[in-house]
Design a protein around this nucleic acid. Structure first.
Lengths: 107, 107
DNA sequence: ATAACATAAAACCTTATGGTTTCACTTTAT
DNA sequence: ATAAAGTGAAACCATAAGGTTTTATGTTAT
């Protein structure tokens, strides 16, 4: 299975609702800090902090373009979290299958 | 897409490494609080708090059995998080496909 | 050259989080 | 009946997290 420790920066980044909304926004297209800030009711420094955490989790990449910082979603990083989760979904399916087998056997 | 707000208790529960380890442990089989505690270096009340948060996120269900509380994984709840993530994986695949198309067109 | 822009960085504040210790309460075993 | 086991709950503590305001810095436009 996926290592719990290595998944930490990703799950940490995903834990905050504002950060998840930023991810949604960046899915539509890359954006500079100010433009992202406009969509929220919090200050730019607060957004900048969220972006840093997203970057640490590998969820976004930043391209410095003159005085702007273009933030771009890196959806591949979401796979780390997805893989971790999917392991258990598989597990669940297996259990369902086993349960079904037991039920079938009782017939 | 999956609502960001409704996903909050799940993502919050997943954010802590101890809680993710508890999930891994419960995937093997349901366990009472004390047995879970034995596997960690923290106190029982700390584990109990983690279990409460997992319960709030719908990730476990608790069956009170005499003086014991049996904690059982509810892997279906992981689907909430998984669905949220998969939306973006699909998005990424689409972009990859588009990019590929552009590249193909240039030939 | 200078003003406006986009942003980072630092200092600070409040609340949430993860942990502990202590105490109380049921349930089971003797 | 009494002791032990399994747990919850409360009080408390230190640190992390999310936010703000203020100050500084490099970049673009006039």
């Amino acid at each position: 299975m996926i290592n719990t420790a290595s998944a930490q920066p990703v799950f940490r980044a995903l834990a905050d609702p504002t950060r998840r909304e930023i991810i949604s926004m960046l899915a539509v297209g890359a954006r500079p800090v100010g433009e992202i800030t406009d969509a929220f009711d919090i200050t730019r420094p607060a957004i900048a902090k969220h972006l840093r955490i997203l970057e640490q989790g590998g969820l976004i990449t930043v391209e410095v373009k003159g005085r702007e910082r273009i933030n771009r979603l890196n959806p591949q990083a979401l796979k780390t979290a997805s893989d971790w989760l999917n392991y258990f979904e598989a597990f669940w399916d297996e259990r369902l299958a086993n349960l079904k087998t037991v039920v079938e056997d009782k017939k």
